[in-house]
Structure formats: C-alpha cells, structure tokens
C-alpha cells in the first residue's frame, strides 16, 4: 500500500481544479508558525512532512493544505513535550466559546 502522500502516478481522473485560493488569516498564521518554529530550531520541515504523512488516510484526503500543517505541527510539538494535548483542547474551547 503506497503511503498517503506518495502520489506520483496514482490513478486519478480528476481535472485540475484551477480555482484560486487567497490564503486566509489563520492559514498565513499557520505558515508563519512553521517558519518561526524552524527558525527557532524547535522543529524541522522534515518533521512537519513526517507528521502530515502519518495522518489517517481519510483525514489526509479531505484535509485542506494548512489543516494538514497544523495537524502535524500539533502532533510534533506534543511528541516533543513542547505542548500537551489537554492544554491545546482547553485553549481551543476557550477561543471557540
């Protein structure tokens, strides 16, 4: 079974969707977070990729680009002990309230 991200030559009859997408604020933030985390030596781009690649297939197929990024950033930061899942969940609940 090929890995989810290894897509070259996979059967795919979809036309290329050429619709433009202007990045939303949170997407710019997710990108900037990654820049700051790599710049600060907290995590590497390869760790970001590895985290994306370890997503469940159904999530990978349907997640938007920066959704994959933030999912991976969270996974890697939790793995490293920089953040823990419970505090992220709490903060999400506070922000979403």
């Amino acid at each position: 079974m090929p890995l989810i991200h290894d897509r070259g030559g996979l059967p795919d009859d979809r036309p290329i969707d050429r619709a433009e997408h202007e990045l939303e604020d949170w997407e710019l933030t997710a990108d900037a977070l990654m820049q700051a985390l790599t710049g600060g030596g907290v995590m590497t781009v390869d760790e970001l990729r590895r985290g994306v690649e370890s997503m469940e297939r159904w999530r990978y197929e349907h997640a938007s680009y920066y959704d994959r990024w933030i999912t991976s950033i969270e996974k890697v930061l939790v793995e490293k002990g920089v953040l823990n899942g419970a505090e992220i969940d709490r903060r999400v609940a506070e922000l979403g309230a």
């Binding site: 090929p2 890995l3 290894d6 070259g8 390869d46 990729r49 690649e53």
Partner: peptide
C-alpha cells in the same frame, strides 16, 4: 520499503 519518512517516490 517506504518506512518512516522517505523522499524517494514509489514510482
């Protein structure tokens, strides 16, 4: 095998 994180595509 593509285990872990590998940049050599299957194709």
């Amino acid at each position: 095998p593509s285990v872990g994180h590998v940049r050599t595509p299957a194709y």
